[in-house]
C-alpha cells in the first residue's frame, strides 16, 4: 500500500463527525467496494448506500416482456448482455423463453450482434440495448455499422438511459454521490458541476480499483467535514472535464432523448435514449409494430426502494430466502453489479 493510500485509509477509519450517507451510484462501485472490503473499514457513522447505477437493475419489467415477445411471437434471434438473461419479466425471463425454444445469445458487445446478423442472413437479429452513457455509444456504433452495411435483418430494442436526470431524482437521498467514473468519461463533468453549483449537491468522480475507491472516499469524507458543497474529479487519469466529444456526437447523430421507465424510480422524463427517425428501420418496436406491453413487477420485490437507497437489500423479506442469485425474484439479485447480489455474495447470511 502506498503512503497516500495509507493516509486515505486513516482519514476514513478516523472519522468521528456527524453521521454521513454516501451513495455509490454505480453498480460496479457497489461490487468493488464489497470485494475490496471497504465497507468493513468504515466507522459506524458512515453509511454507504447503493444507487440506481446498474443498467440491468433499472431495466423495467416490461422491457423483458417485450424481448420475450420478439423472441417467441416473432421468432427473432435475441442477442443480449448475458446479465439480462435471468432478469425476471412478468411471466418469464429470457432464460424461460429459451426453455420454450427461443434463440437467446449472450454477446460481449453490440458489435458482435451485428456480426451474428451478417453470419445469419436468414434470421432476424435483435440486440437488447440497455445501459448508460458508457454503453450507449457501442449500441450507436452497431446501428451505424448495420446501416452502412445495408443490413435488413438487424434491429435494436432500446432501453438506454442517461444519468443526469436520475441524479435530479435522487437529490436529497445522500450527503454525497460517488459518481460513476466511466459515465463521466463519456459525458464529462458538467452535469455534476452544475448540480453542485445550482443545487448544492456534493459528489466525487471515482475510479474502480482499491486505491482509487479508498482515495475517493477519503476525499469525500474530508470535504463533507468542511461542510461546503463540492465536486471533485478523483479519476482524472480517465475522466476529462470535457468527456469524450466523439462519443457524444455519435450518440447525438444516432439517438435522441425520450422519457424512460426506471425500475423503482418510475418514469423519468427525458432520461432515456431512442433511435432517431433516420434509424427507424433499426428500431425493433417500429419494425415489428410492437403493441404496448406493460410489465408487472413481483410485489414482494423491494428493488425500487433498494435502488433509491431507501432500504438495504437485507431489509427485503425474501432476501436470501425466496430470492437468491440462483433464483432471483428481482433484477437487483441477478447482475453481479446489483446491490442485492453484492450483499448476498459478500455478507454473511445466517
Amino acid at each position: 500500500m502506498t503512503e497516500s493510500v495509507k493516509k486515505a485509509r486513516d482519514i476514513i477509519t478516523g472519522y468521528s463527525g456527524r453521521p454521513l450517507r454516501i451513495m455509490e451510484v454505480c453498480g460496479t462501485h457497489t461490487h468493488e467496494i464489497f470485494r475490496i472490503g471497504l465497507r468493513k473499514l468504515l466507522p459506524e457513522s458512515i453509511d454507504l448506500i447503493s444507487g440506481p447505477g446498474c443498467p440491468v437493475c433499472v431495466t423495467a419489467v416490461g422491457f423483458i416482456d417485450e424481448a420475450c415477445w420478439l423472441a417467441l411471437e416473432k421468432g427473432c434471434l435475441i442477442c443480449t448482455f448475458g446479465d439480462l438473461i435471468r432478469v425476471p419479466g412478468t411471466e418469464m425471463s429470457l432464460a424461460g423463453a429459451r426453455a420454450k425454444g427461443a434463440d437467446i445469445r449472450p454477446v460481449y458487445s453490440p458489435l458482435d450482434a451485428v456480426e451474428i446478423a451478417k453470419e445469419n442472413p436468414d434470421r432476424q437479429v435483435v440486440f437488447l440495448a440497455v445501459g448508460f452513457e458508457t454503453t450507449t455509444p457501442s449500441a450507436c456504433l452497431a446501428a451505424e455499422q448495420a446501416k452502412a452495411a445495408g443490413l435488413k435483418n438487424f434491429s435494436l430494442l432500446t432501453a438506454n438511459k442517461t444519468m443526469p436526470n436520475a441524479y435530479n431524482a435522487l437529490v436529497g437521498s445522500a450527503d454525497a454521490f460517488l459518481y460513476p467514473g466511466h459515465v463521466n468519461a463519456i459525458t464529462g463533468n458538467s452535469a455534476c458541476i452544475k448540480l453542485c453549483e445550482e443545487k448544492g449537491v456534493s459528489g466525487v468522480v471515482a475510479g474502480f480499483t482499491a486505491s482509487e475507491l479508498i482515495t475517493a472516499m477519503a476525499v469525500t469524507v474530508r470535504l463533507l467535514e468542511k461542510g461546503e458543497p463540492f465536486f471533485r474529479n478523483c479519476y482524472t487519469r480517465v475522466v476529462k472535464d470535457e468527456g469524450n466529444k466523439s462519443a457524444m456526437e455519435l450518440m447525438e447523430r444516432v439517438m435522441e432523448p425520450c422519457d424512460s421507465e426506471w425500475r423503482g424510480l418510475g418514469l423519468i422524463p427525458m432520461s432515456g435514449m431512442k433511435l432517431r427517425a433516420e434509424y427507424a428501420d433499426y428500431d425493433a418496436r417500429l419494425k415489428y409494430a410492437m403493441p404496448e406491453i406493460k410489465g408487472r413487477p413481483n410485489p414482494a420485490c423491494r428493488c425500487g426502494d433498494v435502488l433509491q437507497g431507501k432500504c438495504k437489500p437485507s431489509d427485503c423479506k425474501v432476501f436470501g430466502k425466496g430470492c437468491t442469485p440462483l433464483h432471483p425474484v428481482g433484477a437487483c439479485m441477478v447482475s453481479d453489479e446489483g446491490a442485492c447480489a453484492a450483499y448476498y455474495q459478500y455478507s454473511e447470511i445466517e
Binding site: S4, S109, L111, D112, G207, T236, N244
Partner: peptide, 16 residues
C-alpha cells in the same frame, strides 16, 4: 462493451 471509450493518461499511484 467492445469499444475503447477513453485514454488512460496517468498512473494510479501518481493520481492518489
Amino acid at each position: 462493451a467492445g469499444v475503447a471509450i477513453a485514454k488512460i493518461t496517468q498512473d494510479e499511484a501518481e493520481e492518489a
